[in-house]
């Protein structure tokens, strides 16, 4: 089988899913317009010439961003595993489960100590 066929199939499925979701949302979704909806979206911040509190962002954005970076970058290690997944077999699976467990320990710490609370 031509190796490009699965790629094409995945592409078709992806495109189909996107088209389906957008189409269904347009047909079935409620249509209410208000001021907040027509404003520019800026990562959850009130879009204003100056940030709240005299030009500086509150430190809680910083905390969330840091947590995001740390957990996000761990994904890098899943790529080499994904490439050699079938050759590594059970060994690779076990090692990856251990790796993800350690990340979860860090996540539990952040969650329990209030790192994810916004206010």
């Amino acid at each position: 089988m031509n190796p490009y066929i699965p790629i094409l199939v995945i592409g078709a499925i992806g495109f189909g899913f996107a088209a389906f979701s957008v189409g269904v949302a347009a047909i079935t979704g409620p249509k209410r317009y208000n001021r907040a909806k027509s404003e520019a979206y800026e990562c959850g911040i009130q879009p204003s010439p100056q940030a709240a509190g005299g030009g500086r962002f509150p430190v809680k954005y910083f905390l969330t961003a840091m947590l995001f970076i740390v957990f996000d970058i761990e994904i890098v290690f899943l790529y080499p595993w994904a490439v050699t997944f079938d050759k590594l077999g059970l060994f690779g699976l076990v090692e990856m489960v251990i790796f993800i467990l350690t990340v979860f320990v860090a996540y539990a710490y952040v969650w329990r100590r209030g790192g994810l609370e916004w206010d």
Partner: peptide, 10 residues
């Protein structure tokens, strides 16, 4: 160390 982090959490 990991158990220690868990202790800090729970």
């Amino acid at each position: 160390a990991l158990i220690g982090v868990g202790v800090e959490a729970f």
